[in-house]
């Protein structure tokens, strides 16, 4: 289950929307135009179970998302879902990793404070003895040129 965002956590002016998330959930989102730049040299790492529920996060994930570790563990990974991300991108992600393949793409993630950060994300299935036991996702700093391409492309995919 995933909780609605809280207006008191949001920094600056914000908009409101209800997002329908993977797994049949919906969530009230508050989002602003405040960007947090991706820090040089860091990798954001997380693992999920096969249903996309977070089982591990590293410190960079905590720092960039604005959530505490307790808030993240057990939450669906879509807690980061930003309304500017087209659903088609996540459908492609799930279709790819459920086939046992790697997925890579550029993602605008939503912070707890309503701001956002861009990442280059790679997701791979964790296969143990032939069975997918979860997924590992690693996010790195994206190039500005690629982000600019996505800013133009993604609105056309809704």
């Amino acid at each position: 289950m995933i909780q609605d965002m809280k207006p008191e956590n949001i920094v600056g002016e914000f908009k409101e929307i209800i997002l329908n998330l993977y797994g049949g959930f919906s969530r009230k989102i508050y989002y602003s135009e405040l960007e947090t730049p991706y820090p040089d040299g860091k990798l954001i790492v997380s693992t999920t179970d096969p249903a996309g529920v977070i089982t591990h996060v590293n410190q960079a994930f905590i720092d960039m998302s604005g959530y505490t570790e307790d808030e993240l563990i057990g939450a669906p990974h879509s807690i980061l879902r930003h309304p500017d991300m087209p659903p088609a991108a996540f459908k492609e992600l799930w279709d790819t990793v459920q086939k046992g393949e790697k997925w890579q793409g550029f993602v605008k993630n939503l912070r707890k404070d309503g701001g956002y950060y861009w990442v280059k994300a790679t997701v791979i299935p964790n296969i143990r003895n032939g069975i997918t036991v979860g997924y590992t996702s690693v996010r790195r700093k994206p190039s500005k040129a690629k982000v600019d391409e996505c800013i133009k492309l993604y609105p056309t995919l809704f």
Binding site: T122, N126, T136, V138
Partner: peptide, 10 residues
């Protein structure tokens, strides 16, 4: 195994 998965993503 986790480190190997991580290296694979990289």
């Amino acid at each position: 195994e986790f480190m190997i998965d991580l290296m694979d993503t990289l």
